[in-house]
């Protein structure tokens, strides 16, 4: 299962790689990373079919996570649509509602609870 993580903070990458160390080693999960919404979109143009899940930060300079979500829903409508989970430090009602309205599948807050994330991954 390939997961694309979009976050402007580069240190998110080793964190995911270590948290999912066993899963990666067992080839259950594979990670790719993008540091901006724009980068994520160009990545998806080539590899849309490989990616099962997109985890995106909302609050990024330039294209925000919400805009990225909108683009994904518009640009890649062919079923099955990719699962998109939004992550944000601002876990307020307004943010949640906006993300859900734009078609997010789930909404997670920072600091990320990796055990919870793992549980959610099992149901995919």
């Amino acid at each position: 299962m390939k997961i694309l993580v979009v976050d402007d903070e580069a240190d998110v990458q080793p964190l995911f790689l270590q948290r999912f160390r066993k899963e990666i080693r067992n080839h259950e999960i594979e990670f790719d990373f993008a540091q901006s919404g724009e980068e994520a979109l160009s990545y998806l143009k080539d590899k849309r079919q490989e990616v099962v899940l997109i985890l995106s930060d909302i609050n990024m300079p330039g294209m925000s996570g919400i805009e990225l979500l909108t683009h994904i829903r518009e640009d890649f409508p062919t079923p099955p649509p990719p699962v998109v989970m939004m992550i944000t430090a601002y876990g307020d009602e307004e943010n949640y509602k906006q993300a859900m309205d734009k078609g997010a599948d789930d909404f997670l807050t920072k600091p990320l609870d990796f055990n919870l994330l793992k549980e959610k991954l099992k149901t995919l």
Binding site: E9, Q18, A89, K110, P111, L112
Partner: peptide
């Protein structure tokens, strides 16, 4: 909050490691 999250996350993952 951002750096603090990293501090928490990296120390947690290090314990697991």
């Amino acid at each position: 909050q951002n750096p603090l999250n990293f501090v928490n996350n990296f120390s947690e993952v290090s314990m697991e490691l």
